[in-house]
Nucleic acid binder design. Structure first.
Length: 418
DNA sequence: TCTGGGGTCCTAGGACCC
DNA sequence: TCTGGGGTCCTAGGACCC
């Protein structure tokens, strides 16, 4: 059996951990730049606040309804996440961390144990150890475990743990469960299925294989098997990333070359930092610039360029240099740019780097970057920068309602008055 | 009249996930 | 004024190889 363990309203729950006064109150967490809502507590959902709702349009509504608003605090969420995932691995060695708030667990060889009981124990342990509420769904396949998890959430009487452990139970549930709520069915597939008159998971599993493969590719066919109870997907091991992207919207339209260039250099150095963190180099970079797509009245210019590097590297200096080269080829004066990004592609293990005949990454950079990483790690990110970066700039992202990094910065730790 | 067969690599685009 | 960021996998078609 597989289990899908999922943290309830994860970001909102994290914000509540050190603010017990917010228990039972509506909370929303905003995206970067405090742009739109990306997480909501149950109370906020009950107020009808939608995912992706724009923050500025709802200021008044938030105030009138005493909604507590937070900027996203990834230092906090990331740390709490690893604590939760760590606690889960006590119950089975087979864990796949699927996202910041979800893990798949495999329970092979547990035939003589009650999974319901194990699930309840996991919930208790995680709540006690971290304060984060979780829901757990057990089922014979990953796709069904996803469904079981939703049922655990939907039905309070389950105690947050739902075990799909009999054929009868499985058949009964998939006959009722609607297809739009299924892992792997996005808006496009849903539209097509709806047009075919397919409403439930059961109906989907009865479609001919050929049709599913033709319209939803092999991915859809695998999903069909999974939903029919045929184990097709297994746990996946953690692999180093294949691409690393740093992209940001700006706080305003940038019309000057120097400003855009500075951002691209900064993104490139962060990319390089992430490459080094997973011991990779990249062989290809992509740089893009975008104007504000929401402003139809302004001239638009969206351009990206992919560039093969003369040699693989993870040096911030070199990557910044190449990224500026790339930017020069796509940047056009006269536009107000709103967003840019740098992507590192064709990653390979740094240890396997093939030496080139004529040109190579400067070998001295490895030591230099190691020192930079060490300093930035100790003093806070982006303390040591390239001279071509804006040295005064801290992080011009709008983050007006950022909570403290309670668990990762000693000077931001919770204080208790007694 | 007839003009093969079997591959790989690359890119763009589409779909999905959190 | 303002509307996020970061990933993966698959397919089709073109260019090229022997």
């Amino acid at each position: 059996m597989f289990a899908l363990v999922d943290c309830n309203n994860f970001y909102a729950s994290c914000e509540r951990l050190f603010r017990p006064d917010l228990v039972g109150k509506p909370i929303v967490v905003l995206s970067n730049n405090d742009g739109c809502v990306i997480a909501r507590s149950k109370e906020a959902k009950d107020l009808g606040i939608k995912m992706g709702a724009q923050a500025f349009m709802n200021e008044r509504f938030f105030r009138d309804n005493n909604v507590h608003v937070f900027s996203s605090n990834y230092a906090l969420y990331g740390d709490i996440s690893s604590r939760v995932m760590g606690m889960l691995s006590v119950f089975t060695p087979d864990v796949e961390v699927y996202s910041i708030d979800e893990s798949f667990l495999k329970f092979d060889g547990f035939d003589y144990f009650s999974l319901q009981e194990i699930g309840l124990k996991m919930r208790k342990a995680v709540t006690q150890g971290t304060g984060i509420p979780i829901s757990i769904g057990f089922a014979p396949t990953k796709a069904l475990a996803k469904i079981a998890n939703k049922l655990a959430k939907k039905r309070p009487e389950t105690g947050g743990v739902y075990v799909m452990n009999s054929v009868e139970r499985l058949e009964e549930e998939i006959a009722k469960f609607t297809i739009d709520d299924v892992w792997g069915i996005g808006p496009q597939h849903f539209k097509r299925l709806q047009a075919m008159g397919i409403r439930t998971v059961l109906q989907f599993t009865q479609l001919p294989d050929e049709w599913v493969q033709k319209h939803m590719s092999i991915v859809g066919l695998r999903l069909k098997r999974e939903l029919a109870g045929i184990r097709t997907l297994d746990l996946e091991e953690a692999k180093p990333k294949q691409n690393i992207a740093i992209t940001r919207s700006f706080n305003e339209n940038y019309t000057e070359w120097d400003k855009v260039k500075e951002r691209v250099i900064t993104f490139a150095t962060i990319c390089a930092e992430r490459l080094r963190a997973q011991d990779s180099t990249c062989r290809v970079i992509q740089v893009f610039v975008l104007t504000n797509r929401f402003r139809a009245d302004q001239p638009q210019h969206n351009k990206s360029i992919t560039m093969k590097l003369p040699f693989p590297t993870n040096s911030g200096l070199e990557l910044a240099h190449f990224a500026v080269d790339a930017l020069k080829r796509i940047y056009q004066p006269g536009y107000g740019y709103k967003k840019a990004g740098v992507l590192a592609m064709e990653l390979a293990p740094a240890a396997d780097t093939q030496r080139m005949i004529f040109e190579n990454s400067d070998p001295r950079h490895a030591n230099l970057m190691a020192v930079v990483d060490k300093l930035n790690h100790a003093l806070g990110q982006q303390k040591v920068k390239l001279a071509s970066q804006d040295l005064d700039r801290v992080w011009k992202m709008k983050q007006e309602r950022l909570s403290p990094r309670y668990t990762t910065r000693i000077n931001e730790i919770i204080t208790i008055s007694c």
